[in-house]
């Protein structure tokens, strides 16, 4: 077993542990912090796979942006410091059933998918190549999803502005 395999297993174990702690922690702020640690471990796996750019984006977007927003909304809620009430057994049943079903479905898809070898040479994951590929409209270009996502972001921006806008005095 090489060093990178050992590091991968350590990172994977940490990711799963922190993910489980996120779900099972009874203090909501602690859950947010465990989610953060889990996301950082995923960024570590990206670095292990030499996808530095994706790792950096993972940290910028999820850790620096989304988790901070989650923590902010926790700060602004009342009674956030108290322990959450214990779970209802009926909900617990669904909460176990649904993830297990999701896991079963996705592993069924993965194990039954015929992974074919392609002849195209792998692209170096430098920022330069990623940028060119992102705005490329040839085959394997990503300009359409890129534009679709930007429309989505624009819509959410406009929506948040409308929510925040002051109503005109009648």
């Amino acid at each position: 077993m090489s060093a990178s395999t050992i590091i991968f297993y350590i990172l994977a174990a940490l990711t799963l542990t922190f993910g489980a702690l996120t779900v099972f922690s009874r203090k909501i702020f602690r859950a947010a912090v465990f989610l953060l640690l889990s996301l950082i471990c995923i960024a570590g796996i990206y670095i292990l796979m030499e996808m530095d750019f994706v790792a950096a984006l993972q940290i910028v977007i999820y850790v620096g942006g989304i988790v901070v927003l989650i923590i902010f909304s926790i700060f602004l809620t009342q009674k956030a410091g108290e322990r959450l009430p214990s779970r209802l057994p009926k909900r617990l049943l669904w909460a176990i059933l649904l993830p297990v079903a999701g896991l079963a479905f996705s592993s069924w898809v993965i194990f039954n998918h015929p992974f074919a070898q392609t002849g195209t040479a792998p692209i170096e994951p430098t920022v330069h190549n990623i940028g060119l590929q992102l705005l490329n409209y040839d085959q394997y270009g990503y300009v359409l999803p890129f534009e679709a996502v930007s429309i989505l972001l624009l819509a959410s921006l406009v929506g948040s502005i409308i929510i925040a806008m002051k109503k005109k005095q009648q």
Binding site: V33, D52, F53, A56, I59, V60, V68, V127
Partner: peptide, 27 residues
Amino acid sequence: TNIGVLFISAVSSIGVIGILMAGWSSN
């Protein structure tokens, strides 16, 4: 690394979490 500057600004954004943790946990 080929993302040097981006890495620095990405990592320094984690620092705020430590500050938020300190502020929250102090009660």
